[in-house]
Amino acid sequence: MLLLLFYIGDDLYALDSSQVLEVIPRVILRKLHHVPDYVAGVFNYRGSILPVIDLSLLIRGNPCRLCLSTRIIIVENTRQLTGKGYLGLMAEKITDTLSKAPSDEPQPHLTDMIIEGQRLIQLLRVESLLPKEEQQWLSSISST
C-alpha cells in the first residue's frame, strides 16, 4: 500500500494513494456563504465545480497555513449516490509518500495508527471524514 503523507499542525497523517486522483498546487478558491467554516471554497476543476475541505480547520480548528507545500488533494467522493463526485482536501507539507506492506496495514481497533520508525502516522479514510449527509451535500455542489 502506498500512502500519501501530510501534516495537520505538527501531526503526521496519511491517505491511501488509491483514493487520490491528483495533488495540485493551492489555487484561488471562491468562498461560499452559509456553509461550515471547514469548506474553504470551490474552484473550477476540469469543467466541474469542486468543493475544497480545509483538513486542518476540520480536524484541529485552525486553518491551513498558506505555505508553498500546502496543496489540494483531489479524491473521489465514495459516498455519492449517483455518478462520480470529487472532493478537494487542503493540507500542509504534502511532500512525501510511504510504502507499507499489506501486512503492515493498520487494524480498525488500533484507530488506524501506523508506526514508522519513531513516527506515529494516522491514516485518514475519505469516507469517514464527514457524516454521510455532508458528503452528499458537498457532492451536489460539484454536480451543478
Rank of each mutant, 00 (worst) to 15 (best):
S48A: 00
I94G: 04
P108F: 05
K132P: 00
L123P: 02
G85I: 02
I94Y: 07
T70C: 10
T70N: 11
Y13L: 09
D11H: 10
V39Y: 01
T82W: 11
M1S: 02
R71G: 04
L123H: 05
S99V: 09
E116K: 08
V20W: 05
G83Q: 11
R119Y: 04
D10Q: 13
L58F: 13
V20Q: 07
I24V: 14
E22Q: 14
I72R: 04
I121A: 03
G85E: 02
K93V: 02
L98Y: 11
K132F: 12
N77G: 08
M1P: 00
Q80K: 12
R125Y: 12
L55N: 02
D11V: 09
K84L: 07
I72F: 07
D10I: 08
H34A: 11
R125T: 06
Q107V: 13
P36V: 09
K31D: 02
G41I: 06
T82C: 09
L98F: 13
Y7G: 01
S17N: 09
N62V: 06
P51S: 05
D11W: 07
R65H: 10
R125G: 04
P108R: 06
V52N: 00
D37V: 05
I73V: 13
L120S: 11
L3Q: 00
S17V: 14
Y45V: 00
L58N: 08
I72A: 09
I94E: 04
T144P: 06
G47P: 02
I74E: 00
Q122E: 13
R26N: 02
D16C: 04
N62A: 05
E127K: 15
P51M: 05
K100S: 11
H34T: 10
S128Q: 15
M113P: 07
V35S: 05
R119M: 05
G61T: 07
F43D: 03
L120W: 11
I74C: 04
E127F: 10
Q135M: 15
G41T: 06
H109V: 14
L138H: 14
I49D: 01
G9A: 03
L57W: 01
R65L: 11
I53S: 02
P131S: 12
I115E: 12
L130F: 15
L68R: 09
Y7C: 02
Q107T: 14
L120Q: 14
C67L: 12
H34Y: 12
L138V: 14
Y7E: 02
T78L: 06
